[in-house]
Amino acid sequence: MTKSLKMPILKMTARNVSVAYGSKIAINNVSIDVDQDEVVAFIGPSGCGKSTFLRTLNRMNDTVASARVTGEIKLDGQDIYSPDMDVVQLRARVGMVFQKPNPFPKSIYENVAYGPRIHGLAGAKADLDRIVEKSLRRAGLWDEVKDRLSDSGTALSGGQQQRLCIARAIAVDPEVILMDEPCSALDPIATAKIEELIHELRGRYAMVIVTHNMQQAARVSQKTAFFHLGSLVEYGNTSDIFTNPREERTKDYITGRYG
């Protein structure tokens, strides 16, 4: 990774974030910065809380009644857990792609158009058409589906569905995209396409990706955070983490000694 002279612009900051489900503590005192034009990868063994932490970044944990989040998470300097933060708007600004591709059981067009429509981003039909095309192009899916936009989104292959979900997320023009193991249900070719896509989207959106695949983390991210048992063990430049980890636990994990 080349060092740029430009000062990185902080997009999201998390300070001393803890998450508890009832009395069980899932995330303990985690602090992380996400820069404007970076991809951050979260790695760690199953159940270490990386997905939980990811979901605090756009308040998806709100849907879990027993979840309690403490600490401070800011988007552009604004506390996202403050009472005057509108959750709906937050989730439009911080989009999410899930582990299992989950297109709506509607047409491909409707899948992408849904977000802009509910947020009133497109006035006329022509605007909406343009947004749909642009989003599908950015997601690298346009050429494959342009002739069958009215087909069901669920009729696509797994990799196409996941790219459709990415198109759906970028259609509302978010600032940050969170990806929760976006390739875990995909074959290597579809995975490569998604990784390529992440490369292309970098710079336009800040991205956070949770992954179990360490090669993937090494390939797509500039920074990597290693979680273990709910704590952040190590956070730094990806190149450093994978070649010269500071912590013994990080080294053990990436060499496959546990996890």
Binding site: N58, M60, T63, V88, Q89, L90, R91, A92, G95, M96, V97, F98, K100, N102, P103, F104, P105, Y114, G115, I118, H119, C165, R168, A169, A171, V172
Partner: peptide
């Protein structure tokens, strides 16, 4: 109705009422 559909809608900023009437109820 699969929870993933609710997540998907919430994830792009649908309000709970929109989730219910656009996705959960039709399904």
């Amino acid at each position: 109705v699969p929870p993933s559909i609710r997540d998907a809608a919430l994830g792009i900023g649908a309000s709970p009422v929109q989730v219910v009437f656009h996705h959960v109820l039709p399904l």
